[in-house]
Design a binder for these strands. Structure first.
Lengths: 269, 269
DNA sequence: CGGGTCTTTGAACCACATCAAGGTCTGTGG
DNA sequence: CCACAGACCTTGATGTGGTTCAAAGACCCG
C-alpha cells in the first residue's frame, strides 16, 4: 500500500511516487528509480522543524497528521495548517533560508525528505520538477488566501462548518470515510486555526449536533448533512452592493490600457 | 529613475532589473539585454485580471498601487493584499491555470509582464530564474501566514497599528517618507483587509490620533510614535501557557526519530 | 485508581458590528 | 464660479456574537 522500497533498512520513494502523492501531474517519464528520496518517521508530539531554524529541506507527508504553528512573543501558538498526506512542509523557509513556522506531529508520521539543494540541482536535469514545485507552492498560496477570506468575513458557525467540510473532503481524497472520522487535533488547536476560542468551537459543534447537521462524540465526528454545512453562511449577507459594484466596473473599464504587441487580458467579466 | 528602455514605443526591462525590483538576489550575470520583459500601463480602477480568467502571465509592479480581492457569492469583496512596487501578481493562477483572485489598480500603474510559458521555457537556459521564483513565492506565503496569524489573534487596534507600521516600512523601502504618507485605499478596503468594518478602522485611527501615536487628515497619515504602534498588542496577553508548553516539548522530544544517513534537524530549541 | 489534559456547559461581559446622521471632498455641468 | 451629486469619512447610540471566567464531567495513561 505505502509507496517506496527498502534500502539500507529505510524507505525511499522515486519521483513518480512523490508526484502522485502531491496530486500533481507528472509530465514526463523520468527513468524511475535512479533518484530516490528518503523517508523519515516522527512520533506523536515531535517537532519536524522550529521557527528560526536554518532551512535546508522540504518535507512531503506520506502518512500521519501534523500542525504548523506560529508562536508570538508570549509563547501563544497560532495554528496555520493541519498538513496531512500529500501536503508539503517547509516552503516558508525558502525565502529567508530559515523556517518561519514550526511543524509538530499530531500522530505518528512518515515524511519524505526533499533536500532543497538536491532539489534545485535536480532542476537542471529534470525540468518538469520546476513545474511541480510551482504548482505545489501556488496551491498552498491559494489555500492561505481562502483562509484569509474565511477569517476576515465568516461567522464562527460558518468557519467551523467549512472546517468540517474541508476535513471530510480531505479524508475522502485519502480514501477514508468522509462521513465518519476522528479529529486529530484538540478544540484549542481548531479554535486557534479558525480564530476562535476553544469554548466557541465546542459550543458550535454541540449546536450542529442538536440541529442534526453532525454527530459529536469527543473527537469522533459524523457528518450528517454536508450540503447544509457547505452552504452555512455569515449571518447578515450584507445588503447588496452589487449595483454600485457593477457601476464602478463599467466606469473603470471605460478608459483602457493598450499594450503594444500582446494585448493583456483586460477582463470585462 | 525608472528601469527599462524604449523599443517599439514601449518600455522593456531585462532580467537584472526585474530581480532588483523583486528585491531578490541575482546569482548570475546573464547577458543583459537579450531577454526583455514588456511593461504595460493600467489606469486607476482598471482590473488586471479577474477571478476564473485563464491564467497565462505573472505581473511585477514597477510603480503604482493595487489591491487583490476575493469575491464571495454575494458579490462582497474580501481584500487580500495591497501590492505595490516590487510585488508579484498572479501567482495564485499557476495551480489551477485560472486566477483565483482579482487585481485592481488603485492608482495608475506600470506593470511588467512575465508570460508564464516564456518564464518556464527560460528556466532551461537561465537556471537561477528558478530560485528567484521560489524566493518570491515563499515570501508571499510567509506574508500570508503572518496575515492569518494577525487575523486569528490580534485585536482591532493591534491590527490597524501593524497595518500602519507595515505600510510605513514599505514606503521607506520604496524611498518615500515613512513618517508621512497617503493611503491609497479607502477605510472600507482597509477594513476588509483587516477583517474589520470601516467604522472600526475610522474610530481606531481617530483614537490613535488622540493618543498622539499618529496624525490623521483624511488619507494623509503621519506616524508619530512608530515604536508604540509596533508593540501595541491584544488586550489580554492570555495568561502564560509557557510552563506547560516547555513541559510538552521535553516530553515530545524524549523519544526521537533516527533517520538513516542524514539526521534531520530535530530542534531541541 | 489518580493526576493531567481535554471537553462541555453556564453566566456575565465587552469589543466590535450595526444602524443612523451629518460632515467633507471631488469632480462635473450649468 | 458655484451648485449639486456621489463617494468617502467621522462620530454617536445601541445591540450582540464571541470571549472570558468558572466549574464540573469525560477520557487517558501510567
Amino acid at each position: 500500500m505505502e509507496a517506496g522500497r527498502q534500502r539500507q533498512g529505510r524507505l525511499w520513494s522515486n519521483l513518480k511516487e512523490v508526484c502522485d502523492l502531491l496530486r500533481i501531474a507528472t509530465i514526463s517519464t523520468v527513468a524511475a528509480d535512479e533518484l530516490l528520496f528518503q523517508h523519515v518517521q516522527f512520533k506523536t508530539g515531535q517537532r519536524i522543524h522550529t521557527i528560526g531554524q536554518p532551512f535546508d529541506t522540504l518535507y512531503i507527508v506520506n502518512s500521519g497528521f501534523l500542525k504548523t504553528v506560529l508562536i508570538d512573543e508570549f509563547g501563544n501558538e497560532q495554528v496555520l495548517s493541519f498538513p496531512m498526506k500529500g501536503d508539503m512542509l517547509g516552503v516558508d523557509g525558502i525565502h529567508t533560508r530559515h523556517y518561519s513556522s514550526e511543524a509538530v506531529a499530531l500522530s505518528d508520521c512518515d515524511l519524505i525528505l526533499l533536500p532543497f539543494k538536491k532539489l534545485t540541482a535536480l532542476g537542471r536535469v529534470h525540468l518538469e520538477l520546476e513545474n511541480v514545485m510551482y504548482g505545489v507552492m501556488s496551491r498552498e498560496l491559494v489555500r492561505e488566501q481562502a483562509m484569509i477570506g474565511m477569517l476576515g468575513a465568516l461567522s464562527a458557525e460558518a468557519r467551523v462548518a467549512r472546517f468540517l467540510v474541508a476535513l471530510a473532503e480531505r479524508f475522502a481524497l485519502m480514501g477514508y470515510s468522509s462521513k465518519l472520522f476522528n479529529l486529530r487535533m484538540t478544540r484549542h488547536e481548531i479554535g486557534s486555526y479558525l480564530g476562535l476560542t476553544l469554548e466557541t468551537v465546542s459550543r458550535t459543534l454541540s449546536a450542529f449536533n442538536e440541529i442534526g447537521l453532525i454527530t459529536v462524540d469527543q473527537r469522533t465526528i459524523g457528518i450528517k448533512d454536508p450540503d447544509a454545512l457547505k452552504t452555512l453562511r455569515r449571518l447578515p449577507p450584507s445588503r447588496s452592493r452589487a449595483k454600485q459594484l457593477a457601476a464602478a466596473r463599467l466606469k473603470a473599464d471605460a478608459g483602457a490600457a493598450s499594450p503594444a504587441t500582446a494585448t493583456p487580458m483586460l477582463a470585462t467579466m
